[in-house]
């Protein structure tokens, strides 16, 4: 029973964090750009939301403000890379590290509690209670997570099907071709970074409200969690190729990641060990598919050798 409750919490967290993973998916997989802004823009999303709500701004509006703060973070990374010609990884790291100071400035201190304020989670919970539906906060979070994940997937699916979206996907494949077809690749990268970091800040905003607090350290390692979700999704749903299904795979990966974490915690490890565990999960998820294909290649060689000997 206790474990089932833990799974419910894991699903809720998985859904909320999957929006971050979807943002990372845009840069890492579609654009083939190693964007390290993530840890910063995620925290920015949470901090902006917290300070908005603490100042009496309606939570839904706070979400939108966070989203635009995230787009700004992405734009800075794009500017550093495109105009100052800083390598992509370093451009992201520079934005990420400067966002740490900026986030402290935004909140005026290292953390902001939200327990005494209304968030969209509490609002929905109260709304449902009024019509006689008393749900636990995790179940409410699952509903909200599903709603936002669905919206994000639909919007991204639409956008990456448009002319601009298509040329962004092509940029991730082949920059020379995109330029030969008359599109400025600086612009395509810029747009993709803005969209990705908007998603990531949205995730930060939702996670902050769900946890009831924003903290300048909450984004540490977020990029690895996003990556873990992507690779777990890819390993488990290896055969899907359609863009929509791939995004669903990322969401499933994010949920599975949270369930693995819940399991590990049930086994008695402490939350302090989580970062190490995450790194191990990612390393395994990246190593296993290679190991499996090598194993089959070896089998095939052995079979071929045997057939030659028999013949």
């Amino acid at each position: 029973m206790q474990f089932l409750l833990a799974v419910e919490g894991a699903v809720a967290q998985g859904l909320l964090w999957s929006i971050l993973a979807l943002g990372s998916y845009i840069t890492f997989r579609l654009l083939n750009f190693t964007d390290m802004t993530v840890d910063g823009s995620f925290t920015t999303g949470a901090c902006v939301t917290a300070i908005c709500i603490a100042n009496g701004i309606p939570p839904v509006l706070a979400l939108l403000v966070s989203l635009s703060a995230g787009s700004f973070a992405g734009a800075i990374t794009g500017f550093l890379h495109n105009k100052l010609e800083i390598p992509e990884v370093l451009a992201g790291i520079l934005t990420q590290i400067s966002l740490y100071s900026i986030n402290l400035r935004i909140m005026g201190r290292a953390n902001q509690q939200l327990l005494q304020y209304d968030t969209i989670f509490k609002q929905l919970q109260n709304l449902l209670a009024e019509i006689g539906l008393n749900l636990s906060s995790d179940r409410v979070a699952i509903i909200i997570g599903l709603i936002f994940v669905t919206i994000v997937i639909i919007v991204l699916y639409w956008f990456f099907g448009t002319e601009i979206g298509s040329i962004i996907r092509a940029t991730g494949n082949n920059e020379a071709m995109v330029r030969a077809l008359g599109q400025n690749t600086e612009n395509t990268k810029f747009i993709a970074l803005i969209i990705a970091n908007s998603c990531i800040a949205l995730a930060g905003s939702l996670v902050g409200m769900y946890q009831g607090a924003a903290d300048v350290g909450m984004g540490a390692g977020a990029i690895v969690i996003g990556l873990a979700s992507i690779v777990i999704g890819e390993v488990i749903l290896r055969r899907v190729i359609a863009f929509g299904s791939k995004m669903v795979a990322v969401v499933i990966g994010s949920i599975i990641y949270r369930i693995i974490v819940a399991l590990v915690l049930q086994l008695g490890l402490s939350t302090n060990d989580l970062k190490l565990i995450t790194a191990i999960i990612v390393a395994l998820a990246l190593f296993l598919p290679n190991a499996v294909s090598k194993h089959y290649a070896k089998k095939a060689r052995e079979l071929a050798a045997k057939e030659t000997n028999d013949a």
Binding site: T162, I164, S166, L181, G182, Q183
Partner: peptide, 12 residues
């Protein structure tokens, strides 16, 4: 769409 302005209409 080579050399044309790309917008938000469907890519194909």
């Amino acid at each position: 769409r080579r050399g044309k302005r790309r917008g938000l209409s469907w890519g194909i």
